[in-house]
Computed example of a mutant assay.
Amino acid sequence: MRLVLLGFLLSLLTACTQNPEWTLFYYPDEPQIPADAELGEHISGYYGTSEQCLLKGAGMVKLSDSGIGSYQCGHLCVAKEQNDLSCQTYLDSLIPTSD
């Protein structure tokens, strides 16, 4: 009985340790993502899916006092140097844009 309980508890712990892969960067009162922004200063959360991340960013803009803001989500971001990050890919919309 103890072995079954221990196995159950271990499975719960491993299920709760999944790392979020998406990082939300939010730029309040900026109509566009600033080209020279330091990503580390604009982290606003971590999410498991791109959809969760983008929806949170859109909600933050909508709920802001000015109604103006921009956001992007970075996939698999890692720290580089002081307050600097690098992400494999970036998204700023749920709908892909065509050029």
Results as ranks from 00 to 15, higher is better:
66 S>R: 01
19 N>E: 08
2 R>S: 03
98 S>F: 10
57 G>K: 06
99 D>P: 14
36 D>R: 11
35 A>V: 11
54 L>C: 05
15 A>N: 03
81 E>W: 14
47 Y>M: 07
98 S>V: 11
32 Q>P: 03
78 V>K: 14
43 I>C: 04
42 H>R: 12
83 N>H: 03
76 L>P: 00
14 T>D: 05
80 K>M: 15
52 Q>G: 07
4 V>A: 15
14 T>S: 15
4 V>E: 14
90 Y>A: 08
34 P>K: 07
6 L>K: 14
14 T>H: 04
89 T>H: 09
33 I>Y: 09
13 L>S: 04
24 L>N: 07
92 D>I: 08
86 S>D: 13
61 V>C: 00
7 G>R: 08
85 L>C: 06
61 V>F: 00
31 P>E: 10
87 C>G: 09
96 P>Y: 03
93 S>H: 02
7 G>H: 06
86 S>G: 10
11 S>P: 00
49 T>M: 09
62 K>L: 07
71 Y>K: 00
15 A>S: 08
34 P>Y: 11
44 S>V: 03
85 L>E: 04
38 E>C: 04
98 S>R: 10
13 L>G: 05
84 D>I: 09
37 A>W: 07
19 N>V: 12
91 L>R: 14
14 T>I: 13
33 I>S: 11
47 Y>N: 08
53 C>E: 06
73 C>Y: 08
37 A>S: 10
53 C>M: 03
45 G>E: 06
17 T>K: 13
4 V>W: 06
94 L>F: 06
60 M>R: 07
87 C>R: 06
75 H>Q: 13
22 W>M: 15
1 M>H: 12
96 P>L: 02
96 P>M: 05
89 T>Y: 13
78 V>T: 15
36 D>P: 06
66 S>H: 01
86 S>L: 12
99 D>Q: 08
46 Y>K: 10
17 T>H: 13
88 Q>D: 10
86 S>V: 13
27 Y>I: 11
72 Q>K: 09
20 P>I: 05
21 E>N: 13
75 H>K: 13
81 E>H: 13
22 W>T: 15
43 I>F: 07
47 Y>I: 01
8 F>L: 15
79 A>L: 08
92 D>T: 10
49 T>H: 12
92 D>A: 11
58 A>Q: 06
22 W>I: 11
98 S>H: 11
87 C>S: 03
87 C>P: 05
85 L>G: 02
49 T>R: 12
43 I>Y: 04
26 Y>L: 15
91 L>C: 04
83 N>Y: 01
83 N>K: 02
4 V>K: 08
74 G>S: 11
79 A>C: 02
2 R>L: 06
46 Y>R: 10
4 V>T: 14
87 C>A: 14
55 L>S: 03
28 P>Y: 01
53 C>R: 01
96 P>Q: 04
82 Q>M: 02
54 L>E: 08
89 T>M: 10
46 Y>M: 05
18 Q>V: 14
63 L>F: 00
10 L>R: 05
61 V>L: 00
23 T>A: 12
72 Q>P: 01
19 N>T: 11
51 E>R: 11
79 A>M: 13
68 I>H: 00
43 I>V: 11
13 L>K: 04
61 V>Q: 00
67 G>I: 06
68 I>W: 00
86 S>C: 06
14 T>C: 12
32 Q>Y: 14
77 C>N: 03
68 I>Q: 00
